[in-house]
Each structure stands twice: as structure tokens, then as C-alpha cells.
Design a protein around this nucleic acid. Structure first.
Lengths: 344, 344
DNA sequence: TTGTATGCGTTATCAT
DNA sequence: ATGATAACGCATACAA
């Protein structure tokens, strides 16, 4: 237990450095920012004294004067979802190298909290904002306001095209397409779909991919086999509904791994053997999919790459004022495990 | 695609509000902060105009003047670990209600990056810092410096007692104790231990709990049954080493769920039946533990509660300057699933 | 109850 | 190549 006297020392400022060197604060400021108008000798001296005094620049002051804070705000629906924490991981890695910090907020899938987060980030004087929309968000004034204020905004994953911003997204259509295509080529014919509704872009696009895959295979999509299901419990119930009468699908594609988990649970309970009687496919490559029994085939979204790319696009805006909005969707890859491959 | 003209409007300031009301900015400032010296009428007017102008306070300016930024910094080893993202979830929930934002940094289990993060947070003028130490951190000057600068610091989970700060931790000793005790009372006798070394407090304490449980049961702990293993791969290899000669333990307690996963994998491969031939116990209640085959018994750490409590203690320091350092460890609870319970 | 004056630490614009 | 000065937006000590 340290009983060291807690001398609360004031943080050193450029003025302290200037006094010590008998120079002007503005000279020190220029030296620290590497201005070409300062002699190398002075720069070295300033650097030396700065290190001596353990000088740490005051970003609040810099922001106030220059308008740049070197802080980026991030808003996600939930922090404790693998997808988002991994995406943020990617962003942080990318932004840190450029000297930026991240302020992270969660909307809890709630429109009002999302608005609060926006205000809060603007209040903190962030240089830019990266957002993935809450599932409740249908009005975008709060985000248009961000743009109107001149703060660069980048959307990722859950996005709207009602805002003129870059959008970093997965190729969800392709993901849905490839998934169902895989089931079909494995001999499954009657494909059930547990989808996430038509509101959120990612779910809508996956479903469209599913339909396209069916169409391309000459199979008419059957609304009776499509149910909305988000959670594990939803998945369980939906599977029950689809499979209970003995005339159900021979495979189920789920728009989330959690839903797929519910399907696996019901199948086990109902003694429906996976994959021989029922193929199951999830979405997102959650950590647990590798260890379910049977292991769950799923679609990997490269979430950290998504995060890196979102950060990268924002950085371009911050440094070059680039206004390019065109970003290729990030490819998803099918991960084939046991739940979707029948023994031959 | 919105083609709306992007008029970049300056953010409204208290001066704008003051001008509109023909009052002084200081009056507006006081009204907004609810000073008792301002009439209710003025407060209402100010609030109305502030809303009209969509006034958002400038925290950079407030910080510069008052020393308070309403931003808290958090440093964790890795963001994409269930334990930490869940803990941060708890912190954010708690701090948001008091008007605080979170700046989140990761040290990547690296001492130098941890030092960088500290500097970066101080540079961002955070009001306080919550940290969980990187596994490489053995020197604490960077954190002592935080304290010396008068910035409140709270440690959680991975902590050192060389710093005079509050420490919010799990009762890891109890966790290890209860886990092994459970194995013993289930009839397992020869307990293998895959631990995390003696450096990090959490692993050391779990191991101490293990030893105490063995001692209380009159069993002499056997160093030959104790190996260090962090990752899934480590777990696999360690299990192989312990079990290959046929004279291994009849149960293995792992200091992490990932390690336990490796053990399960090896057992399956070696046709060792879990739990009948080998009991397995993990630690942390990772999401996947529920769905392994067999499902994995583990120790739940209430990570979000840990996060809330860390935030709560920091808040006390920030608002009341409270210096109480005494916090009860948070109890862990054993979650008994299939991997540690023999059929009767 | 409200107004006036000042300064937080930095940087941009002058000037020298 | 460097110095002097002002200003960013806000909060506070002091006046009135």
C-alpha cells in the first residue's frame, strides 16, 4: 500500500516549456507540431524539455482553438455483441495509429438513446462519428444535423441510404445467396427461412439473397416457410412451428446464429437429426458456432475488417476532406461445418 | 441520396443564447447549470432558447475552464473478450446516467501500449480512469503518475496492490475453491489444474483457492498435475500431456473456458468420456460454454456488475472526492452443467 | 438576481 | 526563425 504523498502536480504546459527555454509559447507550439519554420536545434531542445517535464498536450485546449480534437465517436446498438465489439476492435486498431481516440456509446437499440449519444458526442467535440443504426431508428434528423454541423459521419453495417454518407457494409445479399445455394447443392430442397424482417437493411438483403438463390435454382419461394425470428427463443419456437406437423422444411437458413441455436435445440428435443434430416445454417460466425453439437455452419462477416474500413474511410474525410462515398461491400464467406452437410 | 445543401452551421454557444435574450453569457451559463442565484423565469427562457437553437454545450471549453470534462477513460487488455466488453457495457450504463461518456482504449496485453493509452487519456483530459492491467505490466509508474496528477484511478479485475486506488475484483479465491470443491464432492479425486501462472492476481488467486479446497479435503496438491495454459491450444496440449500415459487426473479444473475447450477437444479425440471418465470445469461463463458437448460447467463472474461497481466507485470519487478504497470482492457463482457431473 | 472581467492551454495571424 | 497578441467557449470571482 503506497503511502507516498500525493503531491498533485499541475500538468506541464507549453508555457512551462517556453519559460524553461526562455522562448515564446508559440515557438514551442510550432516546434512540437513540426513546423518547417522552426530550426532543428530549437525543435530538439523543445522535445528534450517536453520529455523532461513529461509534457502531455491538452486536447481540450487544442480543440477549442483549432477545431480538431483527435477523438472519434462511435455509436453501436450494443457493445456486448461479438459483431460490434470485434468491429470496434478493428476501428480502434486503425485509428490509434493515427493518434485518435475512440469515444464509444451504445444506443441499446433505442432511438432516443441514439439521439442522446449523438448530442453527447457532439458535446465532446469529436472530429467525426461512426454509427451503426439502432433497429428502432426510422427518422434520421439527428444524423442529418451531424452532417449539417460539418462533422464527418460514416455509417456501417446497419445503414440507411437517406443520408449522404459513406456506408461500410457486408455483402448481405451474397451471404444469403451463398448460404441457401450451399444448402441446395447439398440436396436440401425445402428451405425454411428464419429472417429478421424487412426493416433493417442487413436482414432484408440476406432475405433477398435467399430468394434469388431459390429462383436461380428454379424453386418457388414459399411464404409459409418464412418466419421472423431474432432470438434463440424465437428460433426454437419458429422451428417448432415449421417442423411440428411432419411436413416441414428439410433445411432451415437463419439470419442469425442465435436463432440457429434455437433451431438446434428444438431439433434435439424433437429427435430430428441434424444434418441428416434437417440442415441448419446460421449467420455471423459467433464464437459458439464452432462448438455446438453438431457444429454450426454459418456466414463469416469479417467484422474487424468492416471496422477497419469504416475507420479508414473516416480518416480520409478527416485528413483529406475526401468526399468519396463509394465503398465496395465486404465479402462474406460461408463457413461449412457439420450442421449443413449430409453424410454421403 | 440526399442532395440537400450542406450548410455548415456553427454550433450555437451560450453567447448566441445570451444575445437573443439580451442577457449576459454568464447569466446563461449559470441558468444552464441550474444555479440557485438565477430566477426561475430566466432559467425557463434560457432553456427555451437553448432548445430553439439546438444548443449543445462545448465540453472542451468547459473542461478548459473548470477542469471537468464529463469523460471517463477506460483501459482494458482486449476489447473483443466477452468479459471486458460485458464489463464495459456495465460501466457505460452506469456512467451515462450521470452524463459521462467513455473513452475506451485497449492495451493489447502490452505494457507500452498501456502507457500510450494512459498518456492519450490524460491528453484527452478525462476526469478519471478505470483500468484492468495488461498481463505484461509489472511497473506501475505510469499509473502512479496518473494519481500524482490528481486524476482519480480505479482498478478492476486485473489489479495490483502497489497502487493506492480502489480495486474492484471478483472473489477469485472463492471461485477456484468452489470449483474444485464441487469436483471433489462429485467423487473426483485426482484433480488436474490448468492455471494462468502466478503473475496475474486473478489466476494466482484462483490457484490458491484450488489449493485450499484440496487441503480442506485432506488431499495433498500435486505439482505434477498443475500446468500453465492460457489458450484453447494450450488446453489441448496440456490435457494431452496430463492424460496420455493413462495415469492422469480424473478431473481437470481450468482457469479459463478457452483452455477447458481445448481439454474437451482432446478428450473427444482420445475417446475419453466426459464427465464419466474425466470431469472438466472452466472459468468465466463464456457464451459458448452452454453449447459445448457436453455443456461446460464454469464459474460466472458477473462481469457487468463488476463494471457497474467500478464505475460507481469512480463516480463517488468524482462527485464526493470520496477516498474510500474498501470494496468487497464480487462473489462468483458456480454454474454446474454436464461436464462435471457423473451420472449416478 | 444579474453583469463585468478574466483566464483555462492552445494555435493562428500578425509582426519583426 | 521567432515573438507578441488575440481568440476559441465557458465558468467563476467579484461587482453592482
Amino acid at each position: 500500500m503506497s503511502n507516498k504523498q500525493e503531491r498533485v502536480e499541475r500538468q506541464a504546459t507549453i508555457i512551462d516549456i517556453a519559460n524553461k527555454l526562455k522562448k515564446d509559447p508559440s515557438t514551442v507550439s510550432r516546434a512540437l507540431s513540426g513546423s518547417p519554420r522552426i530550426s532543428d536545434r530549437t525543435k530538439e531542445e523543445v522535445a528534450r524539455v517536453a520529455a523532461e517535464l513529461n509534457y502531455i498536450p491538452n486536447r481540450a485546449a487544442a480543440r477549442l482553438r483549432s477545431g480538431r480534437s483527435k477523438v472519434v465517436g462511435v455509436i453501436v446498438p450494443r457493445l456486448n455483441h461479438h459483431f460490434f465489439s470485434e468491429a470496434i476492435y478493428g476501428m480502434e486498431a486503425k485509428l490509434k495509429r493515427e493518434g485518435y481516440n475512440l469515444i464509444i456509446c451504445q444506443s441499446n437499440e433505442n432511438y432516443v438513446e441514439e439521439c442522446d449519444a449523438v448530442r453527447s458526442l457532439l458535446s465532446s467535440q469529436v472530429d467525426g462519428i461512426i454509427i451503426s443504426l439502432s433497429s428502432q431508428t426510422k427518422n434520421f434528423e439527428h444524423l442529418q444535423y451531424v452532417l449539417d454541423s460539418g462533422v464527418p459521419l460514416v455509417q456501417f453495417d446497419r445503414v440507411t441510404d437517406e443520408l449522404n454518407t459513406p456506408r461500410i457494409v457486408n455483402d448481405n445479399f451474397e451471404g444469403g445467396y451463398k448460404a441457401v445455394n450451399h444448402l441446395l447443392s447439398g440436396g436440401y430442397r425445402k428451405i425454411g427461412v428464419l429472417h429478421g424482417g424487412m426493416v433493417t437493411n442487413v436482414y432484408r438483403e440476406r432475405l433477398e439473397g435467399v430468394h434469388q438463390a431459390l429462383e436461380d435454382a428454379g424453386i418457388k419461394s414459399n411464404k409459409a416457410l418464412e418466419l421472423e425470428a431474432f432470438t434463440e427463443k424465437d428460433g426454437y419456437n419458429a422451428a417448432k412451428k415449421l417442423l411440428a406437423n411432419g411436413n416441414g422444411p428439410d433445411a432451415i437458413f437463419c439470419c442469425s446464429d442465435h436463432t440457429a441455436l434455437g433451431v438446434l435445440e428444438y431439433a434435439k428435443e424433437a429427435n430430428i437429426s441434424v444434418p441428416s434430416e434437417l440442415g441448419v445454417l446460421g449467420y455471423a460466425n459467433e464464437l459458439f458456432t464452432r462448438v455446438t453439437n453438431p457444429s454450426l455452419s454459418t456466414v463469416d462477416q469479417q467484422c474487424d475488417k468492416l471496422g477497419r474500413q469504416a475507420a479508414s474511410v473516416l480518416l480520409k474525410r478527416l485528413t483529406f476532406k475526401s468526399m468519396l462515398n463509394v465503398e465496395e461491400p465486404i465479402k462474406s464467406s460461408l463457413i461449412i461445418r457439420d450442421s449443413s452437410v449430409r453424410a454421403i
